[in-house]
Write a protein that binds this DNA or RNA. Structure first.
Lengths: 194, 194
DNA sequence: CTTTCCGGAATGAACGTTCCGTCAGTTATA
DNA sequence: TATAACTGACGGAACGTTCATTCCGGAAAG
C-alpha cells in the first residue's frame, strides 16, 4: 500500500504555479513545466486531463488557501475598525510574501479562464452569507453608515487599493513596508465612514 | 502619393483591440484577426513587424488616448476635493464606455508584455512631473496632510477602487450607475484626508 | 510599363496530447 | 524463501494540429 500516492500531483501543481506566475500561461509549454518539475510529460497527463484542467486546479488550490487564511485571522470580538484594519493588513502581508500566488491570480482573472468563471464568487457570494465573520463585519459597517454602504463599494475600497499596491510592489515601484501597509489600511477604513 | 495611407493600419489596430479584448492574445490568431478586419494576412505584416509589435502598438494607442483624456478634463481652478472627484468620476465614465480598452489594458499589464514594460510609467513618472495638473493636485493634497501622503498610497486609493469596480461591472456583478460612481469618488477622497 | 500594394496559399516551428516500452514494486506459485 | 508473473506508474519519442511568418502571383496606382 502506498501512503503517499498523490505526492507527484502536488509537485506538479506547485511547479505549475511558479511557472505560470513567472512566464504566463502561453509561455509555459507542458514540456518545460515537466522538466522543471523533474517529471515526464506523460505523467502530467496522468493527473490532469489537459492543460486547462491543470490551470484551473492551480487556481482552486491557491484560491482555497487564500480564503482560508482570510477567514482564519479574524477576531470578531474587535471593533469594526480594528477588524477591518486587521483584515487589510493581514491580506497585504500574506500576498506580499507570495508573489507567485498573486501574479497567478491576476493573470487568471484577467484571462479568458477567470472571466468565464465565477470570478469574484468569493468576494460576492461569500461576503453575503450570514454565518461568517466577513458578512458580519460588512453588515455592521453598513448599518452604522448614514447612507447605506453598497457592497460593491465596500469591496472596491477594501480590496482595490490592496491589489493596486501589491502590483506596484511586485513591479519594484514601491517599497511596501509596514508603515505604508498600515497607512493603507487606515485610509481604506476612512473611506468607509460616512 | 497616398493621402490616406495609414487608414488600413488604423483598421487593423482597432480590430486587434477588439479581438484581443474579447479573446485574449493567444486565442487571437493573426488569420482570424485578418479576416475580421477584412484584410489579408500578409497586409498585417506590412504594417507591423510581428504579433508582438502589434500588441505593443495597440497598447500605445490605448494608453495615449487614456492619458490625454485624463489630463484634458482637468479644471485646476477647482478645489482639491472637487478636482479629485472630477478625476475619478471622469475616469470611471470614460472606461465604462470602453470595455474593450479596459479589458485590453488589464490583460496587457498582467501578461509578460506589460510586466517587462514600463508598467505604471504613466501613473508614476507622469504624476511626478511638475508641469501637469496631476502633479499639482497630488502636491497640494500631500502638503495639506498632517502626516505626509506617500505617492503610492495616493495612487492606490485613487485608482485601485476604480479598477476593481470596473472589473466587477464588466463581469456583470455590479450595476455601475451614477450614484455608485459618485459614492466611490467621494469615498476615495475621504481616504486621502488626514 | 513600372512600381507599389495586397491576399492568401505554403512553410516551418512550436506545442498539446497520445502512445508505448520500461521498470519498480507487489502478488502468486512452488 | 526464491522465482516467476503481473500491474500500473513513468518518461519521452512521435503525431497531428495550430499558428506566426514568408513569399509569390496578381491587382491597382502612377
Amino acid at each position: 500500500m502506498k501512503q503517499v500516492p498523490p505526492q507527484k500531483a502536488e509537485i506538479i501543481l506547485q511547479t505549475a504555479l511558479e511557472q505560470f506566475a513567472e512566464n504566463g500561461f502561453h509561455s509555459s509549454p507542458i514540456s518545460q513545466l515537466a522538466s522543471r518539475a523533474g517529471v515526464g510529460v506523460g505523467s502530467i497527463y496522468r493527473y490532469f486531463k489537459d492543460k486547462d484542467e491543470l490551470i484551473h486546479a492551480v487556481f482552486k488550490q491557491v484560491d482555497e488557501e487564500l480564503q482560508q487564511t482570510i477567514t482564519h485571522n479574524f477576531d470578531s470580538t474587535l471593533s469594526d475598525q480594528q477588524q477591518h484594519i486587521q483584515l487589510v493588513v493581514n491580506l497585504i502581508h500574506y500576498l506580499k510574501e507570495r508573489p507567485h500566488e498573486f501574479k497567478f491570480l491576476e493573470q487568471y482573472y484577467s484571462s479568458p479562464y477567470g472571466s468565464e468563471e465565477k470570478h469574484a464568487k468569493f468576494l460576492h457570494a461569500e461576503v453575503k452569507e450570514p454565518p461568517n465573520p466577513f458578512a458580519n463585519l460588512f453588515a455592521s459597517i453598513s448599518q452604522k453608515n448614514q447612507q447605506k454602504l453598497p457592497l460593491p463599494l465596500y469591496l472596491a475600497m477594501t480590496f482595490g487599493p490592496v491589489i493596486f499596491l501589491l502590483r506596484d510592489a511586485l513591479s519594484g515601484y514601491v517599497e511596501l513596508d509596514d508603515a505604508l501597509i498600515e497607512q493603507t489600511a487606515a485610509a481604506s477604513w476612512r473611506a468607509l465612514e460616512t
